[in-house]
Amino acid sequence: MDFANLLPVILIAAVVIGAAVGLLALGTMLSGRRIQGSCGGLANSNIPGHDAKSPCMSCGASPESCDRPGAEDVREALQKEDAAR
């Protein structure tokens, strides 16, 4: 196979892969949900400073003053945890 015959195959493959990535990105943006790790992300890890009580890694806000989506769930979980103690 020479380059002239291989070029259309390469271009078609690049377009298909690009379209797939673009549609995945569009679906993520339109769903309005945050991307999470398969095990719940960093909030469920044992890494110091990455638990639900630590400040947000992206903006530095504490869970009590955060107004981003999902912050209310974190506040409720913290209240239940404090009540259980």
Rank of each mutant, 00 (worst) to 15 (best):
A4Y: 00
L42R: 09
L78N: 02
D67A: 11
E76Y: 05
D51N: 12
S65A: 14
Q36K: 15
L42E: 08
C56G: 09
E81A: 15
I47T: 14
V74Y: 01
G32L: 11
A19Q: 05
G32M: 09
D2E: 06
N46L: 11
I10W: 01
A20I: 12
M57V: 09
M29D: 06
L24R: 12
N46K: 13
R33C: 04
N5H: 04
P55T: 06
K53F: 01
G32R: 08
A4R: 07
I17E: 06
A13S: 07
C59A: 09
Q79R: 15
I10R: 01
E72M: 04
P63W: 02
R33T: 12
P55V: 05
R68D: 11
Q36N: 14
D2H: 02
A25G: 06
L6S: 09
L42T: 05
R75M: 08
T28F: 13
A20W: 11
N44T: 14
D2R: 03
N46F: 07
I10D: 00
G32E: 12
A20E: 05
S54E: 04
S54C: 04
E81I: 02
L23G: 01
I47D: 06
A14R: 03
R33N: 13
V74C: 02
S58F: 11
R85E: 11
M29Y: 04
V15M: 12
K80T: 07
P69M: 04
A14I: 11
A4E: 08
V16L: 14
C39N: 15
Q79E: 15
C59D: 08
K80F: 04
I17R: 03
S45C: 09
M29H: 05
S65Y: 09
L24H: 08
A83R: 09
G41I: 12
A14S: 12
S62Q: 15
I35M: 15
V74W: 01
V9I: 03
V9K: 00
I35C: 10
A13G: 04
R34A: 12
G32F: 10
G27D: 07
T28C: 10
A61Q: 12
H50I: 02
A43M: 10
T28R: 14
I17K: 03
T28Y: 12
C59Q: 07
K53W: 03
L30C: 05
P48M: 06
I10E: 01
G70Q: 05
S62E: 14
A43K: 07
D67F: 04
D67K: 13
C66E: 03
N44C: 10
I12W: 00
A77M: 08
A61S: 12
A20C: 09
A83S: 08
S31C: 09
A13F: 04
E81D: 14
